Computed example of a mutant assay.
Amino acid sequence: MAPLPDLLDRVERLLVRHEELARTNALLNDQITAITQERDSLRSRLAAARNRVDQLLARLPVETPGDPA
């Protein structure tokens, strides 16, 4: 069995690593939140642009066969 000071050293290193991973995880979660908000905003803008294009297309005159172009 490992001596007590060695075990204490390992536990301390594990705690430091845990803290580092917890901070990294928090930063990644913040990035996910920001990217999700950006994605939702882009989806909304895309839907609005599609709606405007559809409205413009609806205003175009309908061509029938035989109509002069």
Rank of each mutant, 00 (worst) to 15 (best):
T24E: 09
E12I: 01
A49E: 06
A22K: 14
R50N: 10
V62P: 00
I35K: 15
V11G: 01
P61N: 05
P65Q: 06
G66K: 01
R39N: 15
L56H: 07
R45T: 13
E19P: 00
V11H: 04
L60M: 14
E19C: 02
S41W: 15
N25A: 15
E12P: 00
R52L: 11
R23L: 09
E20G: 01
V11P: 00
A22F: 11
L27R: 08
R52E: 10
S44H: 15
A58I: 08
A26Q: 12
L28F: 04
S41F: 12
Q55R: 13
A22N: 13
G66D: 00
T33D: 13
V53M: 05
L57H: 05
Q55C: 07
A48Q: 04
N29F: 03
R10T: 08
L4E: 09
D67M: 07
V62C: 01
L4N: 09
L4C: 12
R10V: 03
L27P: 00
R59N: 15
A2K: 11
R43C: 11
V16H: 08
A49G: 08
P61K: 02
Q55W: 02
L27W: 05
A69L: 13
L14H: 07
L21F: 04
V62K: 03
D30V: 03
H18T: 10
E38M: 07
Q37V: 14
A26K: 08
I35F: 13
A48I: 04
M1H: 08
N25T: 12
D54K: 06
D6M: 10
N29W: 04
A49R: 11
V16I: 10
N25I: 07
E38I: 04
A34E: 14
